[in-house]
Amino acid sequence: MAAPAAVLQSEWTKIRSVRSTVWTLALAFLVTAALGAVISLVFDNNWDSMSDSDKATFDPTAVSFFGMTLGQLALIVFGVLVISSEYSTGMIRTSLTAVPQRATFYTSKVAVAGGLALVVGMLTSFITFFLGQALLGSHKARIGDPGVLRAVVGAGLYMTLLVLLCVGAAAMLRSPMLGLGILMPFFFLVSPILSAVPKVKTVAHYFPDQAGQKIMQVVPSTDDHVSYGPWGGIGIMAVWVVVALIGGYIVLRQRDA
């Protein structure tokens, strides 16, 4: 069998040698951090006009991660392109000719994309948090406060899992158009809208992004009655990821390249 280390190295060369990797990850970082900073600044400036109940449930950690709703779109593009560009360019034939053991090929690709997403996700998460808190002035949270470190690490995990989910989904769909056309609207529109609709939202709370984002909350909001905690939420997301990755592998294994 092909040496896993060699295939990992090859996948690393692949991922670092295309521009889309740099662009999407840089954009994810910039948008998340910058938007989080702006929102934090806005909250700090408007603190006095906020109602008492709003002040009581004010979650400085979650506020600084507000930019994630947009920043995650770039991560979706990254996750989808990592695998579907192999199909759209025809590179998949070259890749599988070099590494015919499809399980090795797939695991290496997933590991490299996931590893890179973890590093970028954690960097983004910590920088976004500290930048946001610095701009929140006296209303800021400290990393040592209860649940805050969990939320910050969790934000990095969320980004990693989101990328892996997209890798798995794209492996099943095989086309960048399909992958982006389904995943972008889903995470940007469908999921947030459905999670705000009464009744439907009890189901929508189990969508991967809705469940996963729970870990970024430190102060529970008054109106949600979800049955899982922060780690439970990320666990639900992880189940989605595992299912997507297995589905992607089955498609890769069964179908002709």
């Binding site: 060699a6 295939v7 090859s10 996948e11 692949k14 560009s85 360019t89 070259t94």
Partner: peptide
């Protein structure tokens, strides 16, 4: 069967490394 965004050198390098 080539990713157009990769340079010729990197294309060959990633293939070489895998084997």
């Amino acid at each position: 069967s080539i990713h157009g965004g990769r340079t010729a050198y990197n294309h060959l390098l990633c293939i070489a490394q895998s084997n």
